[in-house]
Simulated scan of single mutants.
Amino acid sequence: MANSQAAQAGTKSTGKHTHKKLTGVFLDAETFSADLLNSDTIDTSLLNNVNIELTCYDNTLPEEVVGRIANADIVLTNKVVLDSEALQHAKALKYVGVMATGTNNVDTHYCQSHNIYVQNVEGYGTDSVAQHTLMLLLNLATAFPQYHNDVEQGKWATSPHFCLTEHPIVELAGKHAVIVGHGELGKRVEALFIAMGMKVSIAARPGGFLTEERIANKRDPRPSLESLLPGADVVSLHCPLTDDNYHLFNEARLSLMKPTSFLINTARGGLVDEDALVAALKRGQIGGAAVDVISQEPPGPNHPLLMGAIPNLIVTPHTAWMANESRQRLFDIAMNHLIDFVETQI
């Protein structure tokens, strides 16, 4: 289904020139909000300040991408892939707005070489993702899914004792947490972990080099991930997916972790070798894992993390970012970016 909204009627005049309204498409608006232009939860009034005619598609299949972007000046996408094969058909394209932080679904090299501006949205979901991370950790530490299931199955009602004790519970105070990725989100999670009484270490980024804001060409002084893993009780991932860290948690690194340790991934599915993770959980090589992201979204019917009978695994369907406040912040930031860009075209 597609919905259209004229962000401003007619054309815009500066006194010297009359400018034709730009056309835009949002390829997967339903990932953001059902019936976005008439949403009860998202205030879309900022669209009235953008001189574009925007068509919102609930979703876009790979074979539909070319036809929908062919005549667009502006394309908004959350997760729809815009590769060079599709982008070469978009002769009018000037701007790609990624309604998320990661830009791995867009061929940014092609865009750069064809003067197509790519803009993502950063920092919109810090608190939402941080609270989801803490929720996942608390569920692992308290064995909440297992005990909740036991109660639903009547095990408490038939217990000879006042409580159930089958599943171990971990007290997080005093435990050692390792954070991989220390941007805004990593820092927010660090603060929450410290508030829980945990000791926190920040791992050096893969490759060992500092970011631009640090001293150029100096080695990263933070301890390596490999040196931290044997002493880690919790490992939480908050880094982007890059060529350097694809399958960062593979069989070798998982083997360095303690049999009581927890792995949490709210970043990108490709950071974890999922087959290796399943094997580690089944062998009791690590104590548990909780993920909000997987390598294929939506997953296929035989995805290794969804095959059942995997001990102490929690999977949530990429919902860490989805608080209403977070989505509103994302929309507002994205629209302000778009407004700024459109004004440069006048």
Rank of each mutant, 00 (worst) to 15 (best):
M1W: 11
A2W: 08
S4W: 14
A7R: 01
S13N: 15
H17E: 09
K21V: 11
K21A: 12
A29Q: 06
T31L: 14
T31G: 09
T41L: 08
T41Q: 11
I42T: 02
I42M: 13
D43N: 15
L47E: 08
L54K: 03
C56S: 03
Y57V: 02
Y57G: 03
N59V: 06
N59G: 07
L61G: 05
E64Y: 00
V65D: 03
A70F: 02
A70M: 07
N71Y: 04
A72Y: 00
I74G: 02
I74T: 00
L76K: 01
N78L: 05
K79P: 04
D83T: 08
A92L: 10
Y95Q: 01
V98M: 13
M99I: 15
A100G: 15
T101S: 13
D107A: 07
T108D: 07
H109M: 11
C111A: 09
I116T: 12
V118Q: 11
V121L: 14
E122R: 15
G123T: 12
G123L: 15
Y124R: 10
G125L: 12
G125N: 14
T126N: 15
A130W: 07
H132I: 01
L136D: 07
L138P: 10
N139T: 02
L140P: 07
A141N: 11
N149A: 15
Q153E: 11
Q153P: 05
K155W: 03
K155V: 05
K155P: 00
F162I: 14
T165G: 05
P168Y: 05
G174K: 08
G183D: 01
G186D: 04
K187C: 01
R188C: 09
V189H: 04
V189S: 01
V189P: 06
A191T: 09
F193S: 04
M196V: 00
M198S: 02
M198G: 00
V200L: 02
V200F: 03
S201A: 06
R205D: 03
P206N: 00
G207E: 09
G208I: 10
G208Q: 13
T211N: 14
E212Q: 14
R219Y: 04
P223V: 01
A232F: 08
A232M: 05
L237Q: 09
L237N: 04
L241V: 07
Y246H: 15
L248E: 06
L248W: 01
L248M: 12
F249T: 00
E251L: 11
A252K: 15
L254K: 14
L254P: 06
L256Y: 09
P259C: 12
S261C: 03
G269E: 11
G270T: 09
D273A: 15
A279N: 15
A280F: 10
L281R: 13
R283N: 15
R283V: 07
G288R: 02
A290F: 10
A290C: 08
A290W: 04
V291D: 00
D292T: 00
E297D: 04
P299T: 05
G300I: 08
H303S: 02
H303A: 03
G308N: 03
A309R: 08
P311V: 05
N312F: 03
L313N: 04
I314E: 00
V315F: 02
P317E: 06
H318G: 02
W321E: 06
W321S: 01
M322D: 06
A323T: 13
S326M: 03
Q328E: 01
F331Q: 05
A334Q: 13
N336W: 06
H337E: 13
E343T: 11
T344E: 06
I346P: 09
I346C: 00
